[in-house]
Nucleic acid binder design. Sequence first.
DNA 1: GCGTGATGTTGAA
DNA 2: TCAACCTCACGCC
Length: 275
Amino acid sequence: MPEGHTIHRLAADHHKAFAGHKVRATSPQGKFSDSAALITGQVLETAEAHGKHLFLGFAATGWVHIHLGLFGKYTWGTGEAPPPTDTVRLRLATTNAGANATAYADLRGPTTCTLITDGEKQAIHDRLGPDPLRPGDDGGRAYARVSRSRTSIAALLMDQKVVAGVGNVYRAEVLFRHGIDPYRLGRDVTRREWDAIWADLVDLMREGVRNNRIDTVRPEHTPEAMGRPPRVDDHGGEVYVYRSADRPCLVCGGGIRTADLAARNLFWCPSCQRA
DNA sequence: GCGTGATGTTGAA
DNA sequence: TCAACCTCACGCC
């Protein structure tokens, strides 16, 4: 689940469910118990995302900083919350006992779930690059780094100091959509190419927030439009190359390749993506 | 029941 | 470059 679109969606969902409400916070799993005690009874003022970082704002107490890492997941529900399982790091629930349906959110498996100050939050923003999903963030700032770098564009896109929020799926897909070989060096990416990549990330990731999944295939290339069997993938969305090494390229019919790059799986179509 | 892998990041070697 | 961390679903006995 967790690339930037997931986190921005979570920020919006927290806002909708909890903003302006006193919350009840518990940590059945234990690691957040002390902080949960401080949060309980406080009003959630705001929820914000930058890249893959989620910030829940409680005026009196500071911010809850959450990073899902690779395994972190949220489960949402309305009505009476069932007894939490013992891996729930943080359960937030509304406190109104009246006629309104109560809401709860269970967080499991995050890399980070801690209480931080304004200053600590600012330090996180400072070390993150521009985020295609933050209005006003500037892709040109990312290009300043990309264009000076002898690192591959595939590695640069995953570097959160360069662009915040892109993960392994968007990385593979946006490079495919722009016909760029993942091993091309950053400094060999033109300004025009980068501007197109950035604009595309803005579109794709907004769509990702809307649908809560990653879809990158243009209508004319869907398996249906190409007369191929529909794709079944547990990640849920329709993609060109991510985890697709077992099927022909939707555009050229050639083989999708996969390789290790910096301990992550890379996917690309060598005939559609030229150096 | 056991082994595996996954949309991520950090910190030590 | 590598191990560590966090959780769960899936395939294969």
